[in-house]
């Protein structure tokens, strides 16, 4: 197409660009600007240059929240990806061969079900189960004479983070499972048969599977890592970052600074730092997508 023909398309982009500027670009630029100021949200912001950024480097609370978030990647990305892969292989290779697709679909739906809920509602469900006063879990522990194990799971600084991590594994695992199972349909069954005839054990077959579905593994790892850096609702619902700062994550820390502590400049600094990390991950994501697309067409 010539350039003059292409020109006719541009007017269709106008609404999209205007909305993009008002809702995304301008607010984002404002947020970056605010991060260089000291501001309570009323009056004029005081420009302080890199003041907030220097302060944040030595702010132990921020680093605790950051560390918690890195640990959370285990529960949102690492464990679900590994378990999802194992489950996908079991369902795809073994169960479907002997018991048919219907059985496989039923099990897959069961494991996927938590994914359809708002994470906040998942938080409400687990908050109810784990309630120290009337919760189900402690009731069961008492009932089987393990009452000494019963305690305030989310109220104890030692168990709060692991408990939320457990909930996140429960919530997340359906996502890699569904993606990996559909990816495995691409693998030529003859390839696996040939490998088996050559005496390949389950480990070699697993290695072949991982190699064949590595684009999807990358998609899952990167999208869930980005998602884990945005964790907010479950922290808000279950612990509000506590006890102490045991479950604090940067997004909640930013929220506190914006709306509870009236330290808007500092909140903007936290969110700008998180944005930089997420944008870097997003660019890696785009690059790997392009690389796999190229390999596919080559």
């Amino acid at each position: 197409m010539s350039d003059s023909q292409k020109k006719g398309y541009l007017p269709f982009l106008i609404p999209g660009i205007i909305f993009f500027l008002i809702i995304i670009a301008v607010p984002f630029a404002m947020n970056v600007f605010i991060s260089f100021t000291k501001w309570t949200g009323v009056g004029t912001p005081d420009f302080i240059g890199f003041g907030n950024y220097i302060k944040i480097l030595s702010d132990t609370v921020f680093w605790i929240s950051f560390r918690n978030n890195i640990i959370m990647i285990l529960a949102v990305t690492v464990i679900p990806t590994i378990l999802g892969l194992i489950f996908a292989v079991i369902l795809f290779d073994h169960i479907s061969a002997y018991f048919g697709l219907k059985t496989v679909n039923l099990i897959r739906s069961g494991i996927y079900l938590p994914q359809i809920m708002p994470i906040a509602i998942a938080g409400v469900v687990w908050g109810w189960i784990l309630n120290p006063g009337f919760g189900v879990l402690n009731w069961i522990l008492e009932a089987v004479n393990l009452g000494n194990l019963a305690h305030n799971w989310l109220g104890d600084a030692k168990t709060a983070l692991p408990t939320i991590m457990f909930i996140m594994v429960w919530f997340q695992i359906g996502y890699p499972l569904v993606i990996f199972m559909s990816a495995m349909q691409r693998i030529d069954p003859e390839l696996m048969e040939a490998a088996s005839l050559d005496g390949a054990g389950w480990l070699e077959r697993l290695k072949i599977t991982i190699y064949m579905i590595r684009p999807e593994i990358m998609v899952v790892v990167l999208t869930t890592t980005i998602a884990s850096l945005k964790l907010f609702a479950q922290i808000f619902v279950l612990t509000r970052g506590g006890p102490g700062n045991a479950t604090l994550v940067p997004s909640y820390f930013a929220y506190q600074n914006f709306f509870e502590k009236a330290r808007v400049g500092y909140g903007a600094t936290i969110s700008t730092i998180m944005t930089i990390i997420i944008v870097i991950l997003t660019i890696i994501f785009i690059k790997t997508q392009l690389k796999f697309e190229k390999e596919e067409s080559a």
């Binding site: 301008v26 404002m30 998180m274």
Partner: peptide, 10 residues
């Protein structure tokens, strides 16, 4: 993919 807290206050 932008974190919503980076847009929230503005």
């Amino acid at each position: 993919t932008l974190p919503q807290e980076a847009l929230a206050y503005p």
